[in-house]
Each structure stands twice: as C-alpha cells, then as structure tokens.
Amino acid sequence: MKALDGLRATMRRDRVFDVVNHGRRPVRPGELDTRHGPILYLEEVTVSFDGFKALNDLTLYIDDGELRCIIGPNGAGKTTMMDVITGKTRPDTGTVYFGQTLDLTRMSEHEIAGAGIGRKFQKPTVFPEHSVFENLELAMQADKRVWPTLVARLSGEQGDRIDEVMHTIMLTEHGPTRAAQLSHGQKQWLEIGMLLMQNPRLLLVDEPVAGMTHQEIERTAELLNGLAGKHSVVVVEHDMEFVRSIARTVTVLHEGHVLAEGDMDEVQNHPRVIEVYLGE
C-alpha cells in the first residue's frame, strides 16, 4: 500500500505539471494557480444523505473568468454542489480543487472564503441600519481584529474602491441610503457588492433574480455580465429567460449528475434535457 501511496503522490496533478512548467515562476503553497485554465475542478463528486445521492459522480470544470449558469429541476443537486464548494458539506468521494493547488475538501468554510470564493445566498441579508456605503465598508477586505478596527480610518484608496463597487452594482446615488430602505432587487445587488468588496476570484450566486421586477432582472443580467472576466461567476437560476440573456455556457444538472453542457440552444435541443424537463 505504501508504494501505491507514493505513486499517488507523484501522480498528483499539481506535482506532475510543475515539471512541465519548468522555468516558469513556481506557485507558492496556498496560492491560487489557474495557469491551466480552469479555476474550479469538481471530479467524480458524490454526496449522499441517508442513501439519497444528492450528487452522483458529478464532474464539472469552471474556467477562470467564465460566467457559467447551472440549471436543473428541483432536487438536481444545485444547492448541494454550492455547499460542497464552500465547505459546508463534505463530499463522500471525489475531489474538489480551487485552481491547481487548493484542496477545498480539506479547508474550513472560513479558509475557503478567505481563499477567494464568495457565495451569495438566495435571501438577501444586508446590515439594515447601515447605509449602502457603510455596508460595503464593513465587507471590505481589511484587518478585522478588534483593536485595528477601532482605530481604522478609511483611506482614499479604499473610498475609491467602495465608489467603484457602488458604481458596478448601480447604487451610486444610494450611498447614504439606509439598506433597510432599498428595494428587494437593490438589496440583492448590495449583497453582490459586499461580496465584490472581498475581491473574490469565484462568485457563487444562488437564484439572484427570484422576486425581482422585469427591469431589475435586466439590470442584474448586465451586472453579472460585467463581472465575468474579472471574476469567475457561477449562477444557479430557474428563470430560463434570464439564463438565456447572460449565459455563454449552461450546465444542466439532473439527479446529481451533469446531463448536458453547452450554449443555450444546444442545451435546449438536447434530447435528454427535453425528456427530463418535459417528463417524456
């Protein structure tokens, strides 16, 4: 068994490619390495709850800077997949890597968030008594221990960063507005903004347009499209029209497994997808 373990160690993805990458700057341990394209690797992931397989041999890659939509009927395993990536649920088998080097199955939720994975939950939670500006300030990457926070003063650079994010999330005029007074859609944007303040490399967004007005949906699509490139974005959504308006690549999940992957037209004409969605 020892020999087998040794063999496995030499066969590890990150070790093997380091030889191939000879001459390039080596990646320090703990640093995100996306030189091969994908930022997120889920391979053969299985999660079962009391015998029910929420994820069944799921294999999925997300490229750096990509905007990916995940769709699927209820119980397809979308939320479980998010839970596995953020460390809330541990997979029974399979590997989950962030870049080439970071094994997410061995990191705590806190460490995963620190490594650059931000998650937006379905229900928006912001700090209601604080202004939009203050919400973003609180979410900002900074020394978050008690004493440094007591004497913290906003630098010009940090102020600019907050302004920039306020612009991105279309709330520039609402800087001094109390978050409790924002509309539902604006709260969702503010929460995305709070994630952006932490400079995540990968954003997981769970049903962002649920309960939004038509106009808000359109603007959310613009917002998410604008984020792609600078960040990798994974969106889980039911609203097909919305998915069509933002998606370049769509992954369809069904019973914890990838059913189809491709652009919207390909996916919609896929015979298995039609079967699952129309129940034939």
């Binding site: 806190h110 968030a113 939670t125 912001v126 700090f127 209601p128 609180l138 978050k144 926070t149 932490q198």
Partner: peptide, 11 residues
C-alpha cells in the same frame, strides 16, 4: 442587526 452575516463577512 445581522450576527450571522457579520460572521460571514469575516468578523
């Protein structure tokens, strides 16, 4: 106002 959220933000 939102203890869980504050914890999630990293405090």
């Amino acid at each position: 106002d939102a203890e869980a959220r504050a914890r999630f933000v990293g405090y």
